[in-house]
Design a protein around this nucleic acid. Structure first.
Lengths: 201, 201
DNA sequence: TGTAATAGTCGACCAGAGTCGAATTAAAAT
DNA sequence: ATTTTAATTCGACTCTGGTCGACTATTACA
């Protein structure tokens, strides 16, 4: 029995996120006040804070939903028999596409995720595990097929590629790499790395 | 002739930074109000804002000073004849030491530097150039001495190691790597990478 | 030395993030 | 149906980052 309450809660949460998306996208994060946001969502200011702890948490929730969606979609469209390089490019470029569509959101989310004030919470760890769960099998298979050295820990491999992705994103944010060149840049960095991680003949 | 004015300005700027260091370190960034900071520095609130545009700029200025100091010190203590790996470890661990001593400052600084709202300013670019200026010669020499493949661009090499350092820092902030294990973790990642970047026999 | 121009200081003020407890509404108990 | 209990909503309120313009000290110039 879907009680009136639970129903209401989910609806309101969604309407807050939708209002946030509209307003943040149109006017920017800092230019949108919580009061305005509450008005747009048709509720009182205080109510917003019973759904989200802080203004930033709204961004975070939005990104997490979006990211999950992106990754689910990806898990379907990806083919585990492709070469490692291709799979990595598809994965990280999808991630980047999501980021570039929501530059401001993505920025705030990354700031807090990559350099968090507190140690990772359970929620963070869960997100991380889901991320690894998506990539580990790909690296593992690549090891089995001789595309990667077998003496490397999966975690190190995953970290290595993730680090390069972070660098790309950082360069993009700071304007060193324009959007059109991101693919090429990432590709070059991955090639360089894959060259080093493949087994010796 | 050091005019009364310029003298005063430098003194005040310093006293703001010192007060900020004391208060931010003791009570945290968010727990310290500008008014409190002004009181500690012995000036009015408005005056703080004639020295720094925003509260965060205070952190930024502090870090830039500190970073410059760290790097100058390093330039003296480092020996260009050491193996590449050793030099890199010294450089990045010095950087990390500075970070871990001022965790909160470093965090805020990295957030803005790695994922900036705007494209890099002239000041940012200058910092970056000074950074590259310190490392490029090291990589170049390593290429000449056969420690690194010669077909790689210096920028790519520098980016690669910097990316790994960023990852380390991120893992440290999120609690995945405790302080005592940072050296070991960085060392392992560098080994893995150097293996891939060295010339084929 | 006196006066005009300029640089530097200050705190009252404003706007917006986040809190709190009173009021309202839904669910449970009788 | 009525009362009790608990969840939810709300906006007045607080606190703080940042602005503004009146005030003061310094310098330039007559």
């Amino acid at each position: 029995m879907p009680s009136t309450r639970e129903n209401n809660k989910r609806t309101k949460r969604k309407s807050i996120l939708e209002a946030a998306f509209r307003l943040f996208s149109r006017n920017g994060y800092n230019q949108t006040s919580i009061e305005e946001l509450a008005r747009e969502a048709g509720i009182g200011k205080g109510t917003v804070y019973s759904y989200f702890q802080t203004k930033r948490d709204i961004v975070r929730a939005f990104c997490e939903d979006e990211l999950e969606f992106t990754r689910e979609e990806l898990a379907v469209n990806t083919n585990p028999d492709m070469p490692l390089k291709d799979q990595l490019m598809i994965f990280f470029m999808a991630e980047f596409k999501h980021l570039s569509r929501n530059r401001e959101f993505g920025r705030l989310y990354l700031q807090e995720t990559v350099f968090p004030r507190e140690h990772h919470s359970d929620k963070d760890l869960e997100m991380q595990n889901r991320y690894f769960g998506l990539l580990f099998p790909i690296y593992q298979k690549a090891q089995e097929q001789g595309e990667l050295r077998k003496d490397l820990e999966l975690l190190h491999i995953a970290g290595h590629f993730y680090a390069l992705y972070l660098l790309l994103v950082s360069c993009w944010f700071s304007g060193m790499i324009p959007t059109e060149q991101t693919r090429e840049a990432l590709s070059a960095m991955f090639d360089q790395t894959l060259e080093g991680l493949k087994p010796k003949e």
